[in-house]
Write a protein that binds this DNA or RNA. Structure first.
Lengths: 222, 222
DNA sequence: CGGGATTGTTTGGGATACCAATTTGGGATA
DNA sequence: TATCCCAAATTGGTATCCCAAACAATCCCG
């Protein structure tokens, strides 16, 4: 794989895992020393990450994109029509085997699993459901939305009741797809998205001080 | 503005206007001479265009993204839930002035207007409606979808009846938004999207030979 | 005359050099 | 001591350089 893609993936991981704080400045020279590559591939990776809106320009400088809490409502509003469409199409198109694959993924999350696992599966579930729709545009849009939610979701998986609630909701959605009941699946999906939004907003309000203390830029919290 | 953005915008325009044929190879050295800049900003522009899926890698080479007719169905399927949501939200949120602005835009397209004008307005209408929804994610998704449709749409605006049909449908959608009738607006939007899809597929089938003759890569036509 | 190895050319990936602009730190001065 | 100003360092933007891989044309041998 090209060096640029390696740097892109590593940097992406550092940003999404909050190793690099939201709002933190990224100097090309610092990245150069971090990744032991020259500025050429680093700049390519930054341009790429900019298009995913994980980094952003601040004047001439690069910064890690801040977490914009104001986006959470709009994001839910965006996800609802897409994910309801996705589950309906999944009912019509997904094979038993496809659904089984997603079930297995959910099963890997036992109570004792590490937070990272819950976080990953919670994101991937939605992308995999989108994939069952067979529509690549829906997949891409959902994947992008989940990426934008990803960093805020660390707060959700922090508490056990919260993540197990989400897990149960995922199960129910999948159950209705399996039972070929598109209306119920769509209703569950809608409820899940609004529930998640509310859980996240509550967590963020509670944890805002903690985030600020860690130097994270969190904007748009009303 | 930075040179990279200038190159990006120019190249984007050349691709969308079909000055550069779909599937055409882009060598960095050729672009270097075209834009009289060095490879550094050119490569940044290419990385950026790649994320918009207007250029693509073909092995180590860059090519203009082919027109994938197979995408047209998936694109319509993707747009319907988003645009119905957009018009519903527009009914709830758009001001008289906002709606008036879109009306004016439609009015600029008189019968004698050049094809470029019809093409531009036909794209912008959908983006502007999305903007009335107040949801930036919907705007971006619709804008992306319209970009992907853009090149195929040159065929639609080619014939007068076709573009006037689309224009009437746009009028009707906007009328229902103005009348604050979300259900009818959503129904019109759905019909318009499926109609457009069918018109495009028909035009492409008829014109396929012509496109091939111009050396355009058009793939996925069933 | 045909096929395959070989060599020369072109390409993109990466590194580095240079420049202009911005930031910064320190020292002189009021 | 506070403030202002200038020099030096740092930064991102661009140009250029080098290299390895891909491709093509050519030449040699059967």
């Amino acid at each position: 794989m090209s060096q640029m893609l390696q740097i892109h993936d590593q940097l992406r991981e550092m940003i999404l895992s909050l190793d690099l704080g939201p709002g933190e400045r990224l100097s090309e020279r610092w990245l150069e020393s971090q990744f032991e590559g020259s500025r050429t591939p680093i700049r390519a990776a930054l341009v790429r990450l900019e298009s995913e809106e994980l980094v952003r320009r601040d004047g001439r400088n690069w910064i890690v994109a801040p977490i914009d809490v104001g986006e959470l409502e709009a994001l839910a509003e965006f996800r609802i029509p897409l994910e309801t469409t996705a589950v309906r199409l999944a009912c019509a198109r997904a094979s038993e085997a496809d659904i089984g694959g997603v079930e297995e993924m959910l099963d890997t999350c036992q109570s004792g699993a590490p937070r990272e696992e819950w976080h990953r599966v919670g994101t991937d579930f939605h992308v995999e459901i989108a994939r069952l729709s067979g529509n690549p545009f829906i997949v891409k849009a959902i994947a992008g939305a989940m990426t934008r939610l990803s960093r805020a979701r660390w707060l959700e998986v922090w508490t056990e009741p919260s993540r197990e609630q989400a897990w149960r909701e995922h199960r129910r959605i999948l159950g209705f797809i399996k039972a070929n009941d598109p209306d119920s699946a769509a209703r569950e999906a809608t409820d899940h998205i609004t529930d998640t939004r509310d859980r996240l907003l509550r967590s963020l309000k509670e944890d805002r001080r903690g985030l600020r203390m860690r130097g994270f830029a969190v904007i748009g919290l009303r």
